[in-house]
Amino acid sequence: MTVTNNETNNDILMINRKLVQIVSYSLALGLVIFLSFSFYIHQKMTAGLPPGPPMQLSRIDFSESVDSLTAARIKSKVQQMESVKHAYFNIPDGILVFNHDPKVLDADAVVTDVRQHFRANAKRHVVDAEMAGRGCPVTGNNSIFMKVGDAMARIF
């Protein structure tokens, strides 16, 4: 009777061990598939993108009207800042847009500089989470796969 009980216990332990093994292997396999798929999606999405660091687009809003001469001077000054590749000033609406490498140049520092140098009433346009979720039909690379793929691309 005792032998039978021991055998049953052993069987249960074996089954448990097998079960744990199967679950572990399944999880590991799932993780590998998930990482591979993320990497694949990331590669597909970023194929053909220009080389170099990711550039950020930043916007400065001017609350008072800016004449064309001042706008040209502001644009020129911003364009001369390190890592800025291009700038565009929408004069009628008082909006300046420029791209830059955020690791090299902080957008808030640009606003401060423009404010001080031109005594302009300017502030940085900040996109909140609600606005960010509202649009851009062509991008949409913030999925979990893109985020994981991006992290993996940085590692490898």
Partner: peptide, 28 residues
């Protein structure tokens, strides 16, 4: 991005880099 009427359609373009937003500009 500098057009107040159009930019709401492309809001992620002006998002801070980081938090998963790494290259919206390049992708667009």
């Amino acid at each position: 991005a500098a057009d107040p009427d159009l930019s709401p359609f492309f809001a992620p373009l002006l998002m801070e880099l980081g938090n998963g937003n790494t290259n919206n500009l390049a992708v667009l």
